[in-house]
Design a protein around this nucleic acid. Sequence first.
RNA 1: GGAGGGAUAGCGAAGUGGUUAAACGCGGCAGACUGUAAAUCUGUUCCUUCGGGUUCGAUGGUUCAAAUCCAUCUUCCUCCA
Length: 407
Amino acid sequence: MKLFDDLKWRGLIKDITSDDLEQKLNEETLTFYWGTDPSAESLHLGHLSSLLTAKRLKDAGHHPILLVGGATGLIGDPRPSKERQMITKESLLKNYEGIKNQITTLFGYEIVNNYDWSKEINFIDFLRDYGKYFNVNYMLDKDIIKRRLENGITYTEFSYMIMQALDFLYLYENKNCQLQVEGSDQWGNITAGVELIRKKIGKEAYGFTMPLVTDASGNKFGKSEGNALWLDKNKTSSYELYQFLVNVEDEMVISYLKIFTFLSKDEIEQLAEDHLKNPHLRHAHRALAQELITFIHGTEEYLKALKISQSLFSGNFEALNAQEIKEALKDVPNFKFALNDNVLNVLINNNICISKREAREFIANHSITINNKKIIDENYLITNKDLIGEEILIIRRGKKKYYLGIK
RNA sequence: GGAGGGAUAGCGAAGUGGUUAAACGCGGCAGACUGUAAAUCUGUUCCUUCGGGUUCGAUGGUUCAAAUCCAUCUUCCUCCA
């Protein structure tokens, strides 16, 4: 299958700036860029679809440049709702380093920082050399700006689009970068760049956007309990990732396989068929977890996540010895406890519950188990006989949340 | 600079002196059913030593009693200049 058709089949193309792009992608060798602002220390699952698309393009022979926005990050891309809180220069720098390292480790692609070229532009030159190419009416017409006019937008964020357009121009002129690939929220910024390149140097540049990855209810994909799932395994363990992926809604799993794995069309169609026949076996979910985790953290991490999940959810972890459990559960939240303490205290002191009231509620609902035994008495004391190997304790809250207690 | 209207729990939104720890919806959490899925149903959603304590933008006041009345401040919106 040709590259463009593959991208389309995977649902990775939302808008393209020109129909010529199909042929260019299929037949030429392009330099392209994808950018993100360093607004956190680590990338998260939401970024991964773009990064994987970049890899798909690279594998098809195109040259990727990944831009980390040391300059644009200081300004803030307008969100549809309201003005952003500006990030300090110090934390931006810290985030920049984190993300740069992450991308380098994962992909090893060329990384550029738009601060390097943006910092030199002085205000008067900016207005004379670039400002003249931007018609305010045109900018106001962009969807993202239009939406913000109702709630107000500052000049700072209004200018973001210009900075990103400058990036594209700079990369076009200095690195022969002809294509920008971003998530669909970047459409306005991409077209601003394409337009600038056309007006200022009379050249044709291209862009396409990828649809926002969502869950079945249309929310942004990649959050668990309101927290982002990070690509940094110290922030989100491979076990957590595995759990998230294996619990993905059935109706979404196939589209995620297309977006987040490098499995072929045949392989994915086979999984779709398996899934339809035997949904409870969840072959598609398992494949998604395996492919994704192996890609970002490696086989060893994947096997670890799998082993932990299996031992926890098969319910026979009592057969394991303390050392095995400790190793397997290294990534679930840990806590210390004292013997002969009341179960309520243990739950509260270790953030398993947020208050005594809640802890009582969980116990009344039969939601708490210790070593797979339901605790129904809120005065239950934890004693030596609850310990596995005389030192550890496994507390489960609800069906899926595990906590490992170490004496 | 002027006039008016807002600010209530994670979000949206009722509530205009006492029976209001604050309706309702969403979201969250848990239980049942399942497949560690979805849908559905049920419960729950400030803290508590279960006596009570602390909450409705902030501070101060009136009152036996305030989310509700008054003053000042902060902040958002609309209109006018």
